[in-house]
Design a protein around this nucleic acid. Structure first.
Lengths: 355, 355
DNA sequence: CAAATGAATGTAAACGTTTACAATTCAGAC
DNA sequence: GTCTGAATTGTAAACGTTTACATTCATTTG
């Protein structure tokens, strides 16, 4: 429904090519007034407001975000670093992160590390190029990265670590995670209580602090039970399904094969179950499998996976709140890691050994 | 190993607080020279080069990315819009996207729509706030969004659509995807060839063009076979596992239940298989299930899922190459959708009906 | 009515780069 | 030594905002 008035043609410039100056000229005010209108409309007189409003509508003006961020030194963007888009575990964490970020006026950028642990340089680059106001780190740090973090990053660009544990010397770095070691211990205790003695462990990556914490919990539990861990039962699964399938085949190849396999995450547990079944064995009758994370597929896999639940959404929320508090509340960032509660979720993939 | 020289203390400023001016002053050159050193070192004399280099090292200077982007009007950032981080389907697509983006000097920003179809306003905001040089759209558009896209977006901010099909009137919008309709038809044909007649379909969302294409393929196949589709056999699964579980329960509740269920994606197929099993029925003996996408879990689920393979990585690569060609090659963006090859992957979740 | 107040607006500098243009230096040719 | 041209460097404007400060204007107060 075009209205055939005698008004001058409203040739809307392509967005981006019209600046605050054009609006000011058309509205017959100074650019300062337009700026004020945009940032706090109450501060301009009713009458002017409508003129500016009209000019904006006519030109299709929208402020250049780049210029704004540059001038203000603030982007209202938070960078979230995670190993891989496509990892179901992060669905929940991201949901928590996103909800508080949105609520507090921030947008999210997501950056994948593709399973590479982050290097010092990579973190340095982010720290220094102020493309974001803060960083949420959900990915592993290389041991070297830690130095950088402690040395200079935290002073300049707010960072909070989620899920991942951190090397001891960084113990009071801001972070939110479960007690991975205790949780792994609990899971192992559960297998022991079922009567297992030959319990294997598939860890993630050599350098990953996260899964080494879990490994440590496994070892502690075994030790407490007076069982010495055979080193051939501790295998790398690379945090991937394929890695875990290969690892499981190795484990099942042993003359004296384990009766239970504890995987450092669910992704690997899924692969592990598959490998056990393809070897013609049954889960849990022949081999029990326990995972870690409680991703959404854990519930529907067959048999349903016994695993450790992490309050992913809660972690996301807490991480983001801490980060934004630090960003907005000046230098007063709270230190130290906050531990949230985990929970062993008993389903069907683990049972007493049949022997 | 600190070297106790008599050199002046190297008090490195916190990064971000030191600008090109400081470097210039210390090196005894003009800021233009420093700028040139950064962007094209060959253009400054050997001797000056070392002085500037030293000054940069001493101050720990790193250019302010915000200022650079602002000045150059280019961010070297590509925004990727996808429905949800944590969706395994995007692992492959992102991998393709990332590899070509990285190779051509661009970084990625990822933005989730959380299953909301994108509205006109949201796209408009991205188009206008030049925080990225281009957009890869892997998420659904609302029908309304389409208008905006065609009307003004494409002219100003390069956009390429991946995976998703697009409404007919936008047929020549740049995009890369498989022929969803043909693929769905093929999958349905396969079920028909197995002898199924009562084939149900679980679609994604009402508005989603992607799954309505697949639905159309399903209907076409049924029609061709002379079977009229019972409307009660076409159910919404919301693209989620939970949605599909609920949908499947409805389907199985019918007096005359289907012997096969075709799901518009694997995520739903996984939920569907779970629901069939929990109802005490067997897959594929009692109910065949076919999915779509061939996510990595399709291979390891039990029974292994028969599904349609999409060349995810290839799609990612092609999308990104087209986008960057458009960004860099001026206005010469190629038009129209490029169709890539799909493939029906026959595994174990579909078999002839037992009746 | 003058002065004082406060609201509304305008002026201009600043943010950290890049880059067109001008200026300088340098090497070689005469 | 002068001239030429190329190589190198410097000067200063520009990008689109925000914001401290100055100015104007209308209103109230004495």
């Amino acid at each position: 429904m075009v209205n055939p008035t005698t008004m001058p043609e409203q040739v809307r410039e392509p967005p981006g090519s019209v600046s605050i100056k054009d609006v000011a000229r058309i509205a017959g005010v100074s650019i300062a007034t337009v700026s004020r209108f945009i940032n706090d409309p109450e501060r301009v007189k009713e009458q002017t407001r409508t003129r500016v409003q009209a000019a904006i509508a006519q030109t299709g003006y929208s402020p250049n975000t780049l210029a704004q961020s540059f001038r203000r030194g603030k982007t209202h963007l938070i960078m979230v670093v995670l190993p891989s888009v496509g990892d179901p575990f992060f669905t929940g964490v991201m949901s928590g992160i996103r909800s508080v970020a949105g609520g507090r006026g921030y947008s999210l950028l997501i950056n994948e590390t593709q399973f590479n642990t982050m290097t010092a340089d990579e973190i340095g680059a982010m720290v220094v190029s102020r493309q974001a106001d803060g960083i949420v780190l959900l990915a592993s740090l290389s041991p070297f990265g830690n130095e950088v973090l402690s040395a200079h990053s935290h002073r300049t660009l707010p960072i909070v670590i989620g899920c991942e544990t951190v090397s001891p010397e960084l113990a009071n770095f801001p972070g939110v995670h479960i007690d991975n070691s205790a949780a792994a211990q609990e899971a192992t205790d559960y297998l022991l209580a079922l009567g297992h003695r030959k319990i294997a462990f598939i860890y993630g990556q050599q350098q990953s602090l996260l899964t080494s914490d879990r490994e440590q919990g496994y070892r502690a539990s075994m030790h407490k039970a007076g069982i010495s861990v055979r080193e051939s039962w501790v295998v790398e699964g690379k945090l991937t399904m394929e890695g875990a399938i290969a690892a499981t085949r190795i484990l099942l190849g042993h003359a004296d094969r384990p009766t239970a396999i504890f995987c450092a995450n669910d992704e690997m547990a899924l692969g592990c179950i598959y490998a056990v079944k393809s070897a013609g064995l049954r889960v849990p009758e022949d081999v029990s499998v326990v995972g870690f994370d409680d991703i959404r597929y854990a519930r529907i896999c067959d048999p349903a996976l016994t695993t450790v639940y992490q309050p992913a959404e809660e972690i996301g929320e807490k991480v983001m709140n801490r980060l934004l508090d630090e960003i907005e509340g000046g230098r007063s960032g709270s230190a130290g890691a906050e531990i949230v509660a985990h929970k062993l979720v008993v389903r069907k993939s683990a049972a007493p050994p049949s022997v």
